[in-house]
């Protein structure tokens, strides 16, 4: 082997050791920068894909679209009314909490986002949404649809975010089974390639009485995911060596996601102290 090649190999190994010693913060910064650099290309490819899909899409029936539009208008109106009532109740609730001196539960805001890319790597279960750090999204924020939990945010760029799906084993959720006191950790398996892969709810009691079809919800114990988000339904229960495990079918169909909501948990606001009474 030539001396120059040995030197090159040494430099390569030194660089490799340097990369392996990166801490999480540095790694995330690098990933964020690379995603930011590539974001114009990801946006362009998404636009091209949409254009191609619209060309190949079947002819739009205007009458049907009009009917659908009318139905949606009615639904929006209904939603507005519900929203108003909800706001009134929230306001009333806040006043009552203040009177009782009850600590306010952590409120959260939701950001709607469009899915622009699904699964671009070899084995990771992820997707990219069109909202990023400039829209107030942070890392490890829950991502949901009206059906249930989709996953959590991972790499952030100013105008896009990569979401780790619930089907990836890096997205683990503290979960509970409806109608029982059983709680465990729900996670998928990386490199599961099915459209709707099975999830595993581990660390349940052995011989737990869990029926197929029971709903699985987030317990909120972990603090990352809010409680009572639907995760899936139990397919079967299996006893392992030291604990029980439920095989769960995810609630969300990950292959047909178009729009999602990112939940941003907000800091708990302490209730204001009641005004001190001034004694004469």
């Amino acid at each position: 082997m030539k001396k120059f090649n040995i030197l090159a190999l040494l430099v390569f190994v030194a660089g490799l050791v340097g990369v392996f010693t990166f801490d999480t913060e540095t790694t995330r910064q690098i990933q964020s920068r690379v995603l930011s650099l590539l974001s114009p290309f990801i946006h362009s490819s998404a636009a091209m894909q949409n254009a191609a899909e619209s060309v190949t899409a079947p002819q739009i029936n205007t009458a049907e679209v009009k009917r659908e539009n009318d139905e949606l208008r009615v639904q929006v109106e209904r939603g507005r009314i519900v929203q108003q009532k909800y706001n009134q109740i929230i306001e009333e609730n806040a006043k009552l909490r203040q009177i009782v001196g009850f600590q306010q539960a952590a409120p959260f805001k939701m950001t709607a986002a469009k899915v622009i890319r699904r699964r671009s790597s070899a084995f990771w279960n992820s997707l990219i949404i069109d909202k990023g750090s400039l829209d107030g999204i942070g890392t490890d924020s829950p991502v949901i649809t009206s059906v249930g939990l989709v996953g959590k945010t991972s790499i952030l760029a100013p105008r896009m975010t990569e979401v780790i799906l619930l089907t990836d084993e890096m997205c683990r959720v503290s979960a509970k089974v409806e109608g029982t006191l059983e709680q465990g950790i729900l996670a998928g398996e990386r490199a599961a390639l099915e459209v709707r892969p099975e999830l595993h709810l581990r660390f349940l009691s052995r011989n737990a009485n869990i029926n197929a079809g029971a709903s699985v919800y987030s317990s909120g114990e972990g603090g990352v995911f809010p409680p009572d988000l639907l995760l899936g339904r139990v397919k079967r229960f299996e006893n392992r060596e030291i604990s029980g495990e439920a095989i769960v079918e995810p609630a969300v169909d990950f292959s047909s996601l178009d729009h999602v909501f990112v939940i941003e948990m907000q800091a708990v606001v302490p209730a204001p102290e009641p005004p001190a009474t001034v004694k004469p």
Partner: peptide, 16 residues
């Protein structure tokens, strides 16, 4: 013990 809690949801205990 069983990996429950925030540390688990944040990924500790799973192998990246």
């Amino acid at each position: 013990l069983f990996g429950t809690g925030a540390d688990s949801e944040l990924g500790a205990g799973s192998h990246s």
